[in-house]
Computed example of a mutant assay.
Amino acid sequence: MTDRVLILGGRGRIGSCVAQDLINHTQAQITVTGRQAIPEVTARQQGETRAQFLVLELADRESLRDAIAAHNLVIHCAGPFLYRDASVLQLCIEQGVNYLDVSDNRAFTRKALALSEQATTAGITAIVNSGIFPGISNSMVRHDVERLDQPEKIHLSYVVAGSGGAGVTVMRTTFLGLQEPFEAWIDNRWQIVKPYSNREKIKLPAPYGNVGVYWFDMPEAFTLVDSFPVKTVITKFGSIPDFYNHLTWIAAHIFPSSWLKNPGGIEFLSQVSYRMTNVSDRFSGIGVAIRSEVEGQKDGKFVSVCSTLVHENTAVAAGAGTGSIAELMLTNQLNKVGVWPVEQALSTKLFQQTMENRDIKISF
């Protein structure tokens, strides 16, 4: 029986990269959805017999239910996830269909995880927060944690060059992340942190070098606390060229908060930023770098374990992170009923195996 995969929002940069990864690494039949049929997309798919395009509105619940029922894995790539509820996952549970998403929003993640008991009863595997960050980054942390006897502090840093190759979506996600202060687990208690504050310089492998990063709200800020017995979890984000960091800081600290809470304001800032990166991408590139550092006890000594990743295309790396998990689910190598963040579902052995198969190089 041929596997059939439904990619919601598969017309976007991330969804397209997930689809391409599945074409490269599985034999699945793939259905890519979007709100409108676009000739360029259709033409791009004509040479690939295992992919088809389906016009689908997520708000059309009946059509969405029928589409889900016709597949055995659904991959939700239709962000920004701040604007999404868990209805896609609920339909997957109703239809007994496995689920995977690229969500990057704390509130959405909580809604999805709250359905774990229902997913267990339905016998489906559902994994949230796949992709590059969160996603590959979570598995890097798991690897580092497993090298210690007692982990105490997790420090994750992400840096994206220009647009990251992910189109305007990455801009929307960044500005949406500036809207509200958020809770961070620091010294064994939840503390309120202002987004894009507390700049620090971290050292990344070439070609990045020393880069500024800032506090940023990510779902792993709380899933890693649930996953590992640590006292502190820090999640920070930065951009290159560095002047984008300063512009984002101004948006977070000087602009009236009403601007960032207005969808029109978010869209305006996102479109302006995207046009700017269309220029700067030519010299900055569209890559991504991740640094995971876990401090703790090993053989009675306090040590630090670090891993890093550098990839030339953020969207392609995200596609590999999600596609690798989809491949494992389709081949039944990853079968864990319930709803899970990546670090709780994916073993380090399988993670390293799929990354090697995709030539994703991680320095441990």
Results as ranks from 00 to 15, higher is better:
174 T>H: 04
186 I>W: 06
250 I>G: 07
6 L>P: 08
68 I>A: 01
100 L>S: 15
302 F>I: 10
303 V>Q: 06
45 Q>W: 13
196 Y>G: 03
267 E>S: 12
343 E>F: 03
1 M>I: 08
146 E>F: 08
198 N>S: 07
78 A>K: 08
90 Q>M: 08
230 V>N: 04
34 G>P: 02
80 P>H: 07
178 L>Q: 00
200 E>S: 10
169 T>S: 07
91 L>R: 07
140 M>P: 07
304 S>A: 12
17 C>N: 14
130 S>F: 06
41 V>K: 11
199 R>Y: 03
65 R>K: 14
68 I>N: 09
75 I>M: 12
120 T>Y: 06
327 E>G: 03
325 I>E: 03
71 H>W: 04
223 T>F: 11
212 G>L: 05
302 F>Q: 11
257 S>W: 08
154 I>K: 03
48 E>N: 11
289 A>K: 04
229 P>K: 14
265 G>V: 06
47 G>R: 03
314 T>Q: 14
364 F>N: 03
150 Q>Y: 09
87 S>T: 11
215 W>Q: 05
63 S>I: 02
231 K>T: 13
154 I>Y: 10
348 T>V: 14
68 I>H: 09
132 I>V: 15
189 R>D: 12
13 R>K: 09
327 E>F: 06
16 S>P: 12
289 A>R: 08
292 S>V: 05
5 V>I: 09
82 L>N: 15
285 G>A: 13
47 G>P: 04
35 R>C: 01
99 Y>W: 04
76 H>Q: 07
40 E>V: 14
215 W>P: 00
127 I>W: 09
291 R>E: 06
281 D>P: 01
136 I>Y: 02
119 A>H: 03
120 T>P: 04
52 Q>T: 11
24 N>M: 13
